[in-house]
Design a protein around this nucleic acid. Structure first.
Lengths: 360, 360
DNA sequence: CATTTTTTTTGGATCGATTCAAATTTCTGC
DNA sequence: GCAGAAATTTGAATCGATCCAAAAAAAATG
């Protein structure tokens, strides 16, 4: 047996090397780093000196990890690309909440995502985490299935569909819908249009009542139900309200607005199921010469910070996003094996995108 | 020896359990999952069936990791709290670039930070990553030292000081300074004030020429040098230009503006070393009844997206932030053991916060 | 100084996989 | 039916630490 031929690319120094060089057992060497108080001061210093001299990088977490069994990190997963976490306003606030809880306990955050489906599966399988928080905005069911296979605790956020077997944190969508609708109705509005999130399949366009009934996404359905329940109470014929399903992005939302304002009785108020759509709507209306809120009122949903900054500032149904993030993280961190479901309240934040219905 | 007394809380199933149950060696069992093509179809299906029946979660990455030696994830570290990554505009754009490179190679991202100094050390020591990207905005030297001990590749970003031994990506601060100064000088401005990033110690307030000379932070010093070189060329007496050192946040920046506009010859142009300060300045000036750019011009530094959205849109020196992020990630991902230093170019982005110097 | 108590140190077992040379089985061709 | 080639399977070794019961050394007690 000979030493590695090239000095330069020697393999990294292991704890066992230090132990041998210092003339102590590997148990003692380990203690020097992980429980220094149990080893005699003299020995401790000697070992440390040897480690220093040999350029030891400290106990390798890879080794420790296997023994410890716990990673002390939580994975946050989504089907969107990784940049989603840094670009999407909703995700960012959520992450701030998650970060807060992680900072407090010293846990790390690993971002899990992937460019394509195969990689996603692999990344979930190989993520070094103790549990997952899932952003189920899109492709939620696949994300959930993949994660379930890891048999680690996980919490679903913004889970569109209903599944009692998984932990989830959501908001009271019906109440949110009602709040938004009542606000507009009380301002005198009677002609509405809805900019809806997806109901099921990947499609965009106007939605029929049957489609609503058979909707897979209960979140969307509930918001709609909330809108309509409340509007009915004000005597509005909800069957006449146009509902346009978008993909919650610019193109399909604009298409929806075009369609809604194409003719017939124009709405004086728009119920948007996300702040994103609401803000796109405001921009579109303004560009079209319609004043918000004088001509058309717009109310959003989510309560992202950007809403306060747009012009006019957005009236919206605010979710306690940061708190949801905090709780989700805590659920993973102090997981006790039970399935937990929490429904958070929402609140109406009145800013300047809504006003009295125009006369006549 | 007896089976675990309580059925419910059995320890997780290991690959070895599957192997035994299926009557194959653990080598074969391992192959079923990691190299299915080498095992006979019949055996493969049998093992898979057993695994399924026993509720095996798939090969545990903790085990694989130790053997493989490579984590396939990069750590992004800072001394700021974790939420910094999701809230700071500059960091966000940088992260988007890093994400892009990681997405492309399937690498994961682990966020490393800490509430306090001890935890930071621990978190860096125990991060499961193949290398680090360091945001050295503040407390950079400590962050670098801590990371150096891990003996893993790392790249420093926004490294304030000069150290040839570490890989870093930065921008040409002198050129940036000159670009900003020339732009203003060409618009006819002759009376300036500088809102400066920190030069060394943690202090705020006006800065003397000696302090500039002995500055630790070469980034700050270089921007300043760029400003002054160019202004001298236009015949401006740079010794009279007030330089106010802030902590790049609201309070100290406002204090700086108060001090600068407290009396004497008021500046017609402000050179801010960050977009953050520039935007705070615009707000402050506007609130004070001074019109930007009619009364006072403001030019920032960084080129964060928010700058385009503020009112008036900010003229600034744009760094290729996303590209820096991409390169940093790539440096870690295809690390070859060499120390790499890159200096990226910057460009002047003229928007509406600068205009001709007011007459008289 | 012998005994008991306390503090340190030791070294084997373990965490959960992957790897690879060698052994075994199956397949080919004649 | 058999030799040789090809395809599978085996099982010991390894990755880098931590844990812990038992042994050894040091300190305290009578």
């Amino acid at each position: 047996m000979m030493a590695s031929p090239i000095e330069g690319q020697a393999r990294p120094i292991r704890l066992a090397d230090i132990a041998k060089a210092a003339g102590v057992s590997h148990g003692t060497a380990s203690n020097v780093f992980s429980r220094p108080e149990v080893v005699r001061a003299e020995v401790r210093e000697r070992v440390k000196a040897v480690a220093e001299a040999m350029g030891y990088a400290g106990p390798d977490p890879k080794g420790r990890l296997l023994r410890a069994g716990k990673v002390n990190a939580i994975g946050v997963g989504t089907t969107e690309p990784l940049s989603y976490f840094f670009e999407d306003p909703f995700a960012r606030v959520m992450m701030a909440g998650i970060s807060e809880a992680c900072d407090a306990t010293g846990a790390g955050i690993a971002l899990v995502s992937a460019a394509n489906q195969e990689k996603l599966a692999w990344n979930i399988q190989s993520a070094l985490v103790d549990g997952f928080i899932l952003f189920c905005i899109e492709g939620g069911s696949r994300l959930v299935e993949l994660t379930r296979e890891r048999r680690l605790p996980f919490v679903a956020l913004e889970l569109g569909f209903h599944d009692e077997t998984i932990s989830a944190i959501g908001v009271d969508n019906i109440a949110g819908g009602r709040l938004a609708a009542r606000h507009l109705a009380e301002l005198g509005h009677r002609r509405f249009a809805v900019l809806s999130l997806t109901l099921g399949e990947d499609r965009t366009g106007f939605v029929t009542p049957e489609m609503v009934r058979s909707a897979v996404y209960t979140g969307t359905r509930d918001r709609l139900a909330g809108y309509f329940e409340e509007l009915s109470r004000f005597g509005v014929d909800t069957t006449k309200i146009p509902i346009f399903e978008t993909e919650n992005e610019e193109k399909s939302t604009r298409a929806g607005l075009e369609a809604i304002f194409a003719g017939g009785e124009l709405p004086t108020a728009i119920l948007a199921m996300s702040d994103r759509m609401a803000m796109i709507a405001i921009e579109w209306l303004t560009a079209r010469g319609l004043k918000v809120p004088q001509d058309v009122s717009v109310v959003g949903f989510d309560g992202v910070p950007d809403g306060a900054l747009c012009d006019p500032p957005l009236t919206t149904i605010a979710q306690p996003i940061t708190e949801i993030g905090r709780r989700a993280a805590r659920m993973i961190l102090d997981h006790d094996g039970t399935v937990r479901r929490e429904t958070m309240g929402v609140e109406l934040v009145v800013r300047a995108s809504t006003g009295p219905a125009p006369k006549g």
